[in-house]
């Protein structure tokens, strides 16, 4: 069990952090160190949250985008930044749908949980995409399929991309966490 952290926006390194950090981070609480000390209790650090659970099928992609567009509109997220979030989330959900479930596993689901976090006087989105299977990027590109841009797109669009691949337990799936670049607070 390992977490792969990929820095976006041209940063060159990636790192794997020990598994024992996963539990605390996966609870998706307010970011440690965000905001002035003692200024905000945990509840007010989360301005909005949105959670959705869908079957891991192709039709899910459009439904996720429709729901996310509506939420981003409600949050008055800037158009250009909203498109980047849509593109990144769409790729993560695509990966979950495409890779997570072996053929013949009918009951797979994808869960998407999004929340707004304050960061340095601005705000950003933390979106967690969790599936119930193993997300395994294909090690070798299939000839002429040229479908290898999902992860590079996510890292180009987001400030940070974290991939937590689960262990062997049946429902210990893969979680992709996307941290958007920050945008001005309303």
């Amino acid at each position: 069990m390992a977490r792969l952290v990929l820095r976006g926006r041209g940063a060159s390194h990636s790192r794997v952090v020990p598994a024992h950090r996963d539990q605390s981070e996966d609870r998706a609480g307010p970011p440690s160190g965000a905001g002035p000390a003692g200024a905000a209790p945990a509840a007010s650090a989360v301005a909005h949250t949105w959670e959705i659970r869908l079957p891991a099928v192709l039709e899910t992609l459009g439904l996720v985008r429709t729901g996310l567009r509506r939420r981003l509109g409600q949050l008055a997220w800037p158009d250009d930044a909203a498109l980047d979030v849509l593109l990144a989330v769409n790729e993560a959900v695509s990966n979950a749908v495409e890779h997570a479930f072996p053929p013949g596993a009918p009951d797979g689901t994808v869960e998407i949980a999004a929340e707004v976090e304050p960061v340095g006087g601005r705000r950003r989105l933390r979106v967690r995409i969790r599936d119930t299977g193993r997300w395994l990027p294909r090690p070798v590109p299939e000839p002429d399929v040229n479908r290898r841009r999902g992860l590079p797109m996510m890292t180009a669009l987001m400030a940070e991309v974290l991939i937590h691949r689960g262990g062997q337990a049946p429902d210990d799936g893969t979680t992709v966490t996307l941290l958007s670049p920050s945008v001005p607070t309303l």
Binding site: S44, E51, R53, L54
Partner: peptide, 21 residues
């Protein structure tokens, strides 16, 4: 504070590919 709301959506609600593109 809207928190912990879980929308469960079924595939039946999804439009067909011909409608989307």
């Amino acid at each position: 504070m809207p928190r912990g709301r879980l929308d469960v959506v079924t595939g039946d609600q999804a439009p067909a590919a011909e409608q989307l593109l």
